[in-house]
Design a protein around this nucleic acid. Sequence first.
DNA 1: AATATCTTTCAATATATATTGAAAGTTCAA
DNA 2: TTGAACTTTCAATATATATTGAAAGATATT
Lengths: 168, 168
Amino acid sequence: MRLNEAKSRFIQAWGTLGSKWGINRTMAQLHALLMVSPDAMSAEQMMEELNVSRGNVNMNIRELIDWGLVEKIHKPGDRKEYFRADKDIWKITKQVAKERKKRELEPIIKVLEQVSDVEGDKKDKNVKAFLESIQGIRRMANNADKTLDTMIKAEENWFFGGILKLFK
Amino acid sequence: MRLNEAKSRFIQAWGTLGSKWGINRTMAQLHALLMVSPDAMSAEQMMEELNVSRGNVNMNIRELIDWGLVEKIHKPGDRKEYFRADKDIWKITKQVAKERKKRELEPIIKVLEQVSDVEGDKKDKNVKAFLESIQGIRRMANNADKTLDTMIKAEENWFFGGILKLFK
DNA sequence: AATATCTTTCAATATATATTGAAAGTTCAA
DNA sequence: TTGAACTTTCAATATATATTGAAAGATATT
């Protein structure tokens, strides 16, 4: 397979995967593009490669920066802005974990706490079933929270080394 | 907080969380509803609680069954179908992991394999950067795949206990 | 076999989300 | 301080996704 075909297949697949995980397709494609590009890219270059508008590139690159996955680069003697993505997949994974924890896990944990405080007859099977389920979900959420905390601090070779030993 | 308010807050929050993870809101809400309901529910009851149409309930319940999260129940002497969700959150988590692995992780691993086979000058920095990134992503994906395999078979305490201990 | 009860389907519609592109905004060099 | 080069914004539009509801399809009951 030629490089260009491989590249566009990967970008395509990454965009599709992103969609299934609630990530805007263009955002995922931009990320894929930058992950496999040796050099930082300008808005024009990205518009060209992905066939999307300037506004679309601008908004989604901003979102990627907000997620901590892309950074703005200034080349000396050039007014254009360039963008590059970190290529270390372990760092990327941790960064995504960190953001989703903050944006999604922590908020739901708060809701779970709030709804755990139900007044009324604890013998009522409706109350009982509700509280038992919520409690189970809370424990899982708190476990996930702690695990992510630790993962976010962990070294790369945890994932590429330690976990395999554990699961033998 | 009264049970009804707690229930609807939880259902609401679960639906919102689902959306952010690429899951249809009604599907997530139905799942939430069944998770906190002591008894199996009929389509009518669910339509009533969530204020959605019969068709919507039917399609999304079918999807939940397809994900292995809900089962159909027949009550003796009643022609109606009822539905119940497993309430064991560890089982639910494993089931979701199993399905997403099959539907999303395995397909992307195949694409990563395919695009790893790039012809051309391995000294070209474009080829080099592409292959290095893809290789990193592949290693991560394969690790995730193995980890999920193990998790799907594991007991809750062992999994979290083991991971947390390892991280220490 | 006619009827009542319940489920499924799917074209039409509504809603949510993504994308465009041109105008406004910004910055810099002359 | 002007204008060229570049970035940002956002109303309009397009696209994708979800939802409805009535008709068709099942299945049990009389």
